[in-house]
């Protein structure tokens, strides 16, 4: 038996919106400690990892670890049938080939349920090393979304360079070029808007804007985002979800520029 109750459908809706355009099918690994997901896009350029800790749920029970193979587009269609403030219970009996979605309104006067067929997904799990990053930047997620979207008007890839002057995002295209520079915030009157830059070593890498735009669909999940860069290593873009877990993306760099 597996059972997990989300206090609000909205969280699960936001998570799906953040993942479903990158990955079609994924295994939700459900263990005693929580739910995890790791999946690459078809081109193996980006990877998404999700952690939802068991203690972040209203109710969480896993008798035996379960791997739920789910088509995210189908799950997203089902989740659209839930009101944002409905509770969502996912459950699966041992040996069953479906997972049940139970939606309950806050005053318990409406209940609906959907059963989704599970799939056998043969996915490869990658070992992600705990790297020491050359630079780490924390900023409002809306700011990152704006930069990525603004620069996409001029080209396909962005060069991110971290130096003593701050972090610079540069785009070059057929029509011209553009750049945005962010500097370490001084003063602490609005901590939620602050930009924090930790540079262990200057670093410069190029990344496809198409993927960064998809990652920024997770902005509604978290007011703040961390981006971590190392020379010749994938970029890490991390959205923390307060007490429940995180949604992280890794993006392989463009090389030979």
């Amino acid at each position: 038996m597996f059972e997990a109750r989300f206090p609000e459908a909205l969280l699960l809706k936001k998570i799906l919106e953040s993942v479903k355009d990158l990955v079609q099918d994924a295994n939700f690994e459900c263990t005693e400690s929580g739910i995890t997901l790791q999946a690459m896009d078809n081109a193996h350029v980006s990877l998404v990892t999700l952690l939802l800790r068991g203690e972040g749920f209203d109710l969480y029970r896993v008798d035996k670890p379960e791997s739920l193979g789910i088509n995210l587009n189908s799950m997203s269609k089902i989740m659209r049938c839930a009101a944002n403030n409905d509770t969502v219970t996912l459950d699966k009996l041992e040996g069953a080939d479906t997972v049940r979605f139970l939606f309950e309104s806050p005053n318990a006067d409406r209940m609906s349920e959907f059963h989704l067929k599970l799939m056998d997904i043969d996915s490869e799990t990658l070992e992600i090393p705990e790297s020491m990053y050359h630079a780490e930047i924390e900023l409002p997620s809306a700011e990152l979304r704006r930069i990525v979207s603004d620069l996409s008007t001029m080209g396909d890839s962005v060069r991110i360079s971290v130096s003593k002057e701050g972090v610079r995002f540069t785009v070059r295209g057929d029509e011209g070029s553009g750049s945005v520079i962010l500097r370490q915030s001084t003063g602490v009157d609005k901590p939620e808007e602050a930009i924090h830059i930790v540079m262990n070593e200057p670093v410069e890498q190029s990344f496809a804007l198409k993927y960064l735009n998809l990652f920024c669909k997770a902005a509604p999940l978290s007011a703040r985002v961390q981006i971590k860069l190392s020379k010749d290593a994938p970029l890490l873009v991390n959205f923390s979800m307060n007490n429940i877990g995180y949604l992280s993306y890794y993006l392989a760099p463009k090389i030979g520029d």
Partner: peptide, 14 residues
């Protein structure tokens, strides 16, 4: 011209 690398180059399969 920059080429897109793949994640498999950096992370190994478990």
């Amino acid at each position: 011209v920059a080429n897109q690398s793949r994640l498999d180059t950096f992370f190994k399969a478990k």
